[in-house]
C-alpha cells in the first residue's frame, strides 16, 4: 500500500486522464465493431469495410496512450476562452445541470406534448438556469418564440413540427 498515496496524488487534478480513457474506449469499441464484421475477400473491393475502422481505432488508441503519458508528465490542455467565458472560476454545475434538465425535458416532451409546449419549457428553463429571474417576461418570450417558430416552420418551410397536446387548437 506504500505506493497508493503517490498514485492518488498523481491522479489528483488530472481529470484530463478521463479524456485519454474515453479515447481509448472509443478506439477499442471501433476495433471490436470492425472486427465483428464478416466480409469475404472480394476482388472489386480489396480494402473492404474493415481497414479504415482499424486505422481509426489505432489512431484513437495511440492518442489515448500518448495523452495519458502527456498528462501524467504534467501536460495540460488549454481550456477554450471566449467573450463570455471567465475561466477564473471553476465549472458551475448549478447552471449546467438545470440547463441539461431543460434540454432533456424537451426531448421527453416534444413528441407527446408538442413543440409549442416543449419549446417553451426548453427556453424558459434555459433562461432560468442561466440566471434570468423575470419569470413572467421570460415565460411570455418563451411562449412567443415557440409559437412563432411553429407557424414559421409550417407556413414558411412546410415543415410540420409536432402539435402534440395542442392538436386542433394550433
Amino acid at each position: 500500500m506504500s505506493s497508493s498515496p503517490t498514485v492518488a496524488s498523481r491522479l489528483k487534478g488530472r481529470s484530463e486522464l478521463g479524456v485519454a480513457l474515453l479515447l481509448g474506449a472509443a478506439g477499442v469499441m471501433v476495433f471490436l465493431d470492425a472486427n465483428g464484421l464478416a466480409t469475404p475477400y472480394s476482388k472489386s473491393d480489396p480494402v473492404g469495410p474493415k481497414t479504415v475502422p482499424f486505422i481509426v481505432a489505432g489512431l484513437l488508441i495511440v492518442c489515448a496512450v500518448l495523452l495519458a503519458v502527456n498528462v501524467l508528465r504534467g501536460g495540460k490542455g488549454e481550456a477554450e476562452g471566449g467573450e463570455d467565458v471567465d475561466l477564473a472560476h471553476p465549472a458551475d454545475w448549478k447552471t449546467i445541470l438545470p440547463l441539461v434538465g431543460a434540454f432533456v425535458a424537451n426531448i421527453l416532451l416534444i413528441d407527446w406534448a408538442g413543440w409549442v409546449i416543449s419549446g417553451t419549457v426548453l427556453f424558459w428553463g434555459s433562461v432560468w438556469a442561466l440566471g434570468g429571474r423575470h419569470y413572467v417576461r421570460d415565460g411570455l418570450i418563451s411562449l412567443a418564440m415557440s409559437i412563432l417558430t411553429f407557424y414559421g416552420f409550417f407556413l414558411g418551410l412546410g415543415i410540420a413540427l409536432p402539435a402534440g397536446l395542442l392538436e386542433g387548437i394550433l
Binding site: 463570455d84 440547463l99 431543460a102 434540454f103 424537451n106 426531448i107 416534444i110 413528441d111 413543440w115 419549446g119 426548453l122 427556453f123 434555459s126 433562461v127 432560468w128 442561466l130 440566471g131 434570468g132 421570460d138 418570450i141 418564440m145 417558430t149 416552420f153 418551410l157 415543415i159 410540420a160 413540427l161 409536432p162
Partner: peptide, 27 residues
C-alpha cells in the same frame, strides 16, 4: 442579456437538429 442569448442558441440548435428528420432520437 446573456440568459436570452444562450437559451436562444440551445432553442434554435434543438429546432434545427429536430427539423432534419423530425425524430426525438436526434436530440
Amino acid at each position: 442579456p446573456r440568459p436570452y442569448l444562450y437559451a436562444g442558441i440551445l432553442f434554435f440548435a434543438t429546432l434545427g437538429a429536430y427539423s432534419v428528420n423530425l425524430q426525438a432520437f436526434d436530440l
